[in-house]
């Protein structure tokens, strides 16, 4: 398994979203939005990119104002995050230590 950064989840918002999705089975849209500190449209765009890449899946409950949108990480998404985090860790370990 190579330690390479994943282009799809490299942007911080998508990385954060994947971190949240892999910590639970399903995560609700508003919880993602609040924790990632993004707007509805921005989050929709980021989640669409993750779904298009096959890293996340979406499920909608209800209709109208009370409807809720849930997201889950797919096995491919979990693996991608695992590899991406391993690559980040390798970069941290290899980085030169800053002087005092």
């Amino acid at each position: 398994m190579g330690n390479e950064l994943d282009a799809v989840i490299h942007p911080p918002k998508r990385l954060g979203a994947m971190a949240m999705l892999t910590a639970a089975r399903w995560v609700e849209f508003s919880f993602l939005r609040e924790n990632l500190d993004v707007t509805d449209s921005d989050l929709s765009k980021q989640m669409s990119a993750l779904c298009d890449a096959g890293y996340a899946t979406v499920r909608k409950h209800g209709r109208g104002p009370g409807s809720r949108t849930w997201f889950a990480a797919t096995p491919a998404g979990r693996l991608a995050l695992q590899r991406h985090v391993a690559a980040l860790r390798a970069m941290v370990e290899q980085a030169p230590i800053a002087p005092d």
């Binding site: 911080p12 954060g16 949240m20 892999t22 910590a23 639970a24 980040l88 970069m91 941290v92």
Partner: peptide, 22 residues
Amino acid sequence: NMETNPEADQLREVNRLRAATI
């Protein structure tokens, strides 16, 4: 290193968001 570089910041953010979700 963990205190200075952007990758370390990203890892910290990943851990924070995972903890919040759990």
